[in-house]
Design a protein around this nucleic acid. Structure first.
Lengths: 108, 108
DNA sequence: TTGGGCACGCACCATTATGTGCGTACTTGC
DNA sequence: GCAAGTACGCACATAATGGTGCGTGCCCAA
């Protein structure tokens, strides 16, 4: 049975919620990145988490994984068209984070 | 030691992330609500969760709790000015949810 | 020859988030 | 008199999330 949402916000949170998904998407909105680049750009994430979240984002159709089939491996990730529809959301989250940090004096 | 963020999005997610916080905030952006109203407007949430999240949002300065001190109890919740700065974020989440539902055929 | 980078998979464990069910002290409606 | 509503608190249990450490097969630099 399909899950019912009482509010569109719930649906969105279901897709981009969680500790890492939005952070990863925010990186990818700046452009294509390799696995190792994402890992370095996201301090604190474990390799397991990064792989796991990327797989989920792929399954949700927000991200494409491109394996160049070379050896040593070269894989990169990009937003799909569907993923790009999230850009306004990611931008809003980004902007609020900046403003909030300014108000509270938290470091960035 | 203060927590470090590698990206402003991380900070935002820390504040409004999780299963319920955004949903509650989205309700409050429509106006003041009593505890019982929020409970009815948010199917699936337990009373414990609702109370817990409201306390956190209060502690983060996004929501005010007003206890009218009457008996039987009458308490209502509203966004603070700080909370109102989140409205563009909440709107972006809402809009994307609507558009996503339309694309995937998910019910609302 | 030893070590590191690449992009993971897998097994196991810890922490956090969330849910469930019950109690409270009082009032109003039936 | 009895149930229901109000706005919770508390104890317990499960589910989701996250971390650790190891192994893979190949290549390149020191």
């Amino acid at each position: 049975m399909p899950k019912r949402y009482s509010c569109p916000v719930e649906l969105t949170v279901d897709v981009v919620g969680g500790r890492w998904r939005t952070v990863i998407l925010a990186r990818l909105k700046e452009g294509v990145h390799r696995y190792g680049e994402l890992r370095r750009l996201t301090p604190g994430i474990s390799e397991k988490m990064l792989t796991q979240r990327l797989r989920e984002l792929e399954a949700d159709g927000l991200v494409i994984r491109r394996d160049h089939g070379t050896v040593p491996p070269h894989v990169d990730y990009d937003l799909t068209d569907e993923g790009r529809t999230l850009i306004p959301v990611l931008q809003a989250l980004y902007d609020w984070g900046v403003a909030r940090a300014a108000r509270t004096g938290e470091p960035l």
